[in-house]
Simulated scan of single mutants.
Amino acid sequence: MLSTRLVAILLTGLLLSACQTMTPEERRAADEAKCRDYGFRARTESFANCLMKLELDRRAERRSFRDSAAMDPWYPWGPPLVIERRVIIRD
């Protein structure tokens, strides 16, 4: 019984450690390495454009995921709420 709990605790810790995200510094270093791999030289305008495009792609991916998840009926908050205010004009 004790060994089963110990294994469960260890597996939970292992799964949680796999969910670790990159720090901003690690992400920047990875982006710089990717742009260097593409052949851009550091401290040039094309290198800066490469970094900018990588960041813009990352943001677009996040927006796309967020928007597609929001349209899912099983998403906790449901689809976006649209409030319509009708104005009735009488002659």
Rank of each mutant, 00 (worst) to 15 (best):
M1V: 10
L2V: 15
L2A: 15
S3K: 13
T4Q: 13
T4D: 10
R5G: 14
R5M: 11
R5N: 12
R5I: 13
L6H: 07
V7H: 10
V7W: 10
V7Y: 12
A8S: 08
A8E: 13
I9N: 01
I9C: 06
L10S: 06
L11S: 11
L11E: 08
L11V: 09
T12P: 00
T12W: 04
G13V: 09
L14F: 15
L14H: 04
L15E: 01
L15Y: 04
L16Q: 04
L16K: 00
S17L: 12
A18F: 07
C19R: 02
C19F: 05
Q20N: 06
T23C: 03
T23Q: 05
T23Y: 05
E25W: 02
E25T: 08
E25I: 06
E26D: 11
E26G: 04
E26R: 12
R27A: 13
R27E: 10
R28I: 02
R28L: 15
A29H: 07
A29P: 01
A30R: 14
D31Q: 10
D31C: 00
D31Y: 13
D31G: 08
D31F: 09
D31R: 11
D31K: 02
D31E: 14
E32F: 01
E32T: 02
E32L: 03
A33T: 14
A33K: 13
A33R: 13
C35G: 05
C35K: 03
C35E: 05
C35Y: 03
R36T: 15
D37R: 14
Y38K: 14
Y38V: 04
G39N: 03
G39I: 08
F40A: 01
R41Q: 11
R41N: 06
R41S: 09
R41K: 15
R43M: 09
T44C: 02
T44Y: 01
T44P: 04
S46C: 02
F47Q: 01
A48E: 07
A48R: 07
L51R: 06
M52F: 09
M52D: 15
M52Y: 08
K53F: 12
K53Q: 15
K53I: 10
L54S: 09
L54N: 09
E55C: 00
E55L: 05
L56Y: 01
L56V: 07
L56M: 09
D57Y: 01
R58Y: 13
R58H: 12
R59A: 08
R59M: 12
A60P: 00
A60M: 09
E61I: 04
E61K: 10
R62Y: 11
R62Q: 11
R62F: 13
R63H: 09
R63S: 03
R66D: 11
D67W: 02
D67R: 09
D67A: 10
S68I: 03
A69S: 06
M71S: 07
M71L: 15
D72R: 04
D72Y: 00
P73V: 01
W74L: 12
Y75H: 13
Y75N: 11
P76F: 15
P76D: 03
P76C: 07
W77M: 07
W77R: 12
W77F: 12
G78Y: 05
G78L: 07
P79W: 05
P80M: 11
L81H: 09
V82R: 15
I83C: 05
I83A: 10
I83K: 13
I83M: 10
E84T: 14
E84W: 02
V87R: 12
V87W: 03
V87Q: 11
I88L: 11
I88W: 03
I88C: 00
I89K: 07
R90W: 03
R90L: 06
D91W: 03
